[in-house]
């Protein structure tokens, strides 16, 4: 009798452990993909790609934004087992089975993908294949490592940013977005946004191939917004607040948020920012480094101060050293006299 109890309890313990271990990965795995894909050694070796792992760790998957989306919603052409050798890459704009709240249409990222496609980051037919490759696609910015960091304090301190993009959606839009982010437990801190954009835009070697301002990031960092953000002031504008999140257009595009005609609207677009911004205020907020070409007045003011400071301090230092030298000299001479 005790032996039976012992045996049963082991069985129960095993079951509990199995359930506990597999639970996180099972959340959206209705088709049991992780039966195989949780195996650490699952993968292939091809001459072109080398070793390629197909492992989906339960930890990463269950904490990802897409943990409630079943695998085949995105991996649409995997319909047979064993899977075909060549499968299409995941496209973010495809509709998946999740429906929008209060709507019957399938959810997709098509709106964002469309904005991205016509933005400066989108495909440009005049560019070579490599040059187009060098631009960020959806997954460059929305990689799992970036999106999935769970920071509650960040979520709270950044909720004011939601209103900047969702102003047109009204209160319902804001609530939806905030609840969606809270549900997903994801939010980007402003400083992370700057870091993400800087990963390309601060890389002069990378950016040289494009016709853009190479001092954007350093210019932002010397401006008040950049400095205050580094000191933890989260309500200052990060890159996306002025340059938009997906529809990033160059300043000479009339639809751009930073086009001279629109920049006043951008600065004043919500109450958190400069809601009463004037046109003259708006154009003063540029953040490139001043040069003799783009802003000669500022360039000379800056150098004027450097020369004034260096010159003044040189004279004062000289005076101090001479004064101190005379004092030391007097002591030395008095000793010699003795």
């Amino acid at each position: 009798m005790p032996a039976t109890i012992y045996r049963h309890s082991i069985l129960v313990l095993l079951l509990v452990m199995l359930t506990a271990l597999s639970a996180p990965a099972q959340q959206a795995d209705a088709e049991n993909c992780n039966l195989c894909h949780s195996l650490a050694l699952l993968g292939i070796a091809t001459p072109s790609d080398g070793l390629r792992s197909f492992e989906v760790t339960a930890e990463a998957y269950s904490h990802s934004t897409h943990r409630n989306v079943i695998c085949r919603d995105c991996h649409t052409d995997i319909n047979v087992f064993p899977h075909p050798e060549e499968v299409a890459t995941v496209e973010c704009y495809k509709a998946c089975h999740i429906t929008k709240p209060f709507a019957l249409t399938g959810y997709s990222h098509a709106e964002q993908a469309d904005a991205h496609a016509i933005s400066a980051h989108g495909f440009n037919s005049e560019y070579s294949a490599e040059k187009n490759e060098a631009k960020p696609d959806c997954k460059y910015c929305h990689s799992n490592t970036f999106r999935n960091i769970i920071k509650d304090e960040v979520l709270e301190s950044n909720s004011q940013h939601c209103a900047r993009c969702h102003e047109g959606d009204g209160l319902a839009g804001v609530i939806l977005h905030v609840s969606s982010h809270s549900g997903h437990r994801t939010a980007e801190a402003s400083i992370d946004v700057v870091e993400l954009c800087s990963s390309c835009h601060a890389d002069q070697g990378h950016m040289k191939q494009f016709d853009v301002n190479l001092t954007q990031v350093s210019g932002y960092e010397r401006h008040f917004h950049g400095k205050a953000l580094k000191r933890g002031m989260n309500e200052v504008a990060n890159c996306m607040d002025c340059h938009r999140n997906h529809l990033n257009l160059p300043a000479d595009d009339p639809n751009s948020s930073i086009h001279p005609n629109n920049i006043q609207q951008t600065c004043s677009s919500n109450a958190y920012c400069h809601s009463d911004a004037t046109a003259k205020f708006a154009v003063s907020a540029i953040h490139s480094e001043p040069t003799t070409q783009n802003n000669p007045i500022l360039f000379f003011v800056e150098w004027g101060f450097i020369i004034l400071t260096a010159g003044t301090m040189a004279l004062l230092f000289a005076h101090i050293f001479l004064d101190f030298g005379r004092w030391v000299g007097d002591i030395w001479m008095r000793r010699k006299e003795k």
Partner: peptide, 30 residues
């Protein structure tokens, strides 16, 4: 800044930003 931009050119705000920061350095050193 917004108030002053109503009657001063935008460059004045940029100059003020540099002047405040750089003159502070000079004052502290002095």
């Amino acid at each position: 800044p917004v108030l002053f931009s109503k009657f001063l050119p935008g460059i004045v705000i940029q100059i003020a930003y540099i002047a405040h920061s750089d003159e502070a350095m000079l004052a502290l050193l002095a």
